[in-house]
């Protein structure tokens, strides 16, 4: 009845409060659980989580070759126009004209690190890097060209 319900209510309340207090006491006494990163101090040993996304980069191999075909999938996928693909005409060894990328322009200042371009890319030409110290004094420096000068497409990537 009423009294039993009342006592039960008080009892469950006290028990649940004690449960919360037990948790905080555990954290209070176990300092190795502390998750604070003392950032500028631990810059050398900093370990970022696997899925942390800092900026879009285009990996190149040792022959200065990348995997980008210039299909514009990333440009279409980007919700706020961060990526612009600029084309040039390349000559294949057989003398044929072939479309290839001249510059892949990436506006870091517009990027929200949403990862949609990486998911859209059919040939895995771009990926997310884990760098995060992006601050510069001139915002023009945030407009980056992802393919290195003189690079060309890797053999066998269509």
């Amino acid at each position: 009845m009423f009294v039993i319900k009342y006592i039960k209510e008080v009892w469950t309340a006290v028990r649940s409060l004690l449960k919360g207090m037990k948790r905080t006491l555990y954290y209070f006494t176990h300092h190795k659980e502390i998750i604070t990163q003392q950032y500028p101090d631990n810059r050398d040993t900093l370990v970022l989580p696997e899925r942390f996304k800092g900026e879009v980069v285009m990996p190149h191999d040792e022959n200065n070759e990348h995997r980008c075909t210039g299909c514009q999938a990333c440009e279409l996928a980007c919700p706020n126009g961060t990526i612009k693909v600029i084309f040039k005409n390349d000559l294949t060894p057989e003398g044929k004209k072939k479309k290839a990328i001249d510059k892949l322009v990436y506006h870091l200042e517009l990027c929200t690190m949403c990862n949609l371009c990486i998911e859209a890319c059919p040939s895995d030409a771009i990926k997310m890097a884990q760098t995060f110290e992006h601050s510069v004094f001139d915002r023009n420096q945030l407009t980056k060209i992802l393919n290195k000068p003189g690079s060309k497409i890797m053999e066998g990537v269509e």
Binding site: Y27, F28, E33, I34, I35, T36, Q38
Partner: peptide, 10 residues
Amino acid sequence: KVSAWMQIRL
């Protein structure tokens, strides 16, 4: 200090 340690901070 107490609040920091209880919230897993420094």
